[in-house]
Design a binder for these strands. Structure first.
Lengths: 213, 213
DNA sequence: TTCGTATATTAACAATGTTCTATTAACGTT
DNA sequence: AACGTTAATAGAACATTGTTAATATACGAA
């Protein structure tokens, strides 16, 4: 273990401390509410030091989001032991809304902001998205849908797993993003979030499911 | 018609020309992509002149959105002659997605951005939201839901019009906002927007509708 | 020791939303 | 017609932002 390794380790530590400082600040004040200078102040470095580790502010925050979004895949995995694929889909939906609404700023950047234009080159994930929690979560959803199709849980006219996955995703994304953006609006007599989540999932699952004979 | 009136008219014209300049620019470059200076340049006034008519940039853009969102209520009204309340709800959903995705920047500010904190005081609409296109559209949706309930179109366990309206809104909002934010992402094998819209609405409507005997 | 590279900082740039201050123009009153 | 008040407008300036350029420092390799 030469001095190279030590430098690499120090560099990684620096990276982490930036990410951690940024994580705390973003979680409180949101993306726009935190400046690079604030992050730098927190770790007691100059603002420019950050640019030695991250290309720009958005790259930094996206990296952060990626890290934290791994937790979502983890939560999905925890549902793997649910036998009934429809129940598993229901659980995935609930977990998704819960995760998104408790990480509103992460969710906002990941799924409510257009992705950066041509910066995908420097992404640490391959094209297929293996290891990318964003695409991983979607892949798990689609896989579960395929299982449900195979198990004959859907009505026979529903055969397009991709379309079904996108349908289910759109639905939970609707509840999640609406809660994040408008959940505190008082002109609306909002029903509790959990109730809305269940109502939406109930409706769509009933609509998709094969009728019991 | 004294000179007071003339001044008021001129003032209103100035306001409109600001709004029109802003409308064009925002429609092309989006909220963040248009600076107050650019708007001022377009109408050939100084940037400060704008502040005599609008408190700040966001107020200006919100006013713009409000104006344009009247078109949505109009489209909803055009569906009033659809007899079957379920079909009307379906049409409302389709119109909503169509409208939102063709006015992405408007939609983003109205429904994908947290509302400003305590600026509601200067809102030209009353607390109930009468005349406010945002709340008007929701009111129309809820009213249609109530009609559908009365007509016995929903399954008997669905009696909460508010919850049903919020369910339907969440669903179409999901499709709309997902299209706006991620519709151009290529890592996903997106089905066409119209297909997704129909699939989501089909599923949820089937799930909510009373079974035919 | 000397050289080069990685790391860090200071200063600065360009753009932004917004405000301060001064100036001009219009209008009603006398 | 002259005057004072008020609204409208502009120019300069401020504070903040993300980011880059130029520069210094530390440390391993030769």
């Amino acid at each position: 273990m030469g001095p190279q390794d030590r430098r690499a380790r120090e560099r990684a530590q620096m990276r982490d401390s930036i990410l951690n400082a940024a994580r705390e600040l973003f979680a409180i004040h949101g993306y726009e509410g935190v400046s690079m200078r604030k992050i730098a102040e927190r770790i007691e470095y100059s603002p420019t030091a950050i640019y030695l580790h991250f290309a720009d502010k958005e790259t930094l925050f996206r990296e952060l989001c990626m890290q934290d979004f791994r937790l979502l895949s983890t939560e999905f995995s925890a549902l793997a032991n649910v036998a009934d694929p429809m129940q598993r889909l229901f659980g995935i939906g609930e977990a998704y809304v819960r995760f998104g609404t408790s990480h509103p700023f992460h969710y906002r950047l990941m799924f409510m902001t257009p992705p950066p234009v041509a910066k995908c080159d420097e992404s640490p994930y391959d094209k297929d998205g293996k290891g990318n929690p964003e695409t991983d979560a979607y892949a798990m959803l689609r896989w579960t849908v395929e299982e449900a199709i195979k198990a004959g849980a859907f009505r026979p006219e529903y055969t397009d797993a991709e379309l079904l996955a996108q349908t289910l995703w759109a639905v939970v994304h609707g509840v999640t993003s609406m809660q994040i953006s408008l959940g505190n609006d008082s002109w609306l007599a909002w029903r509790p979030l959990e109730q809305r989540t269940r109502a939406v999932l109930d409706a769509v699952m009933h609509g998709l499911a094969r009728r019991k004979e």
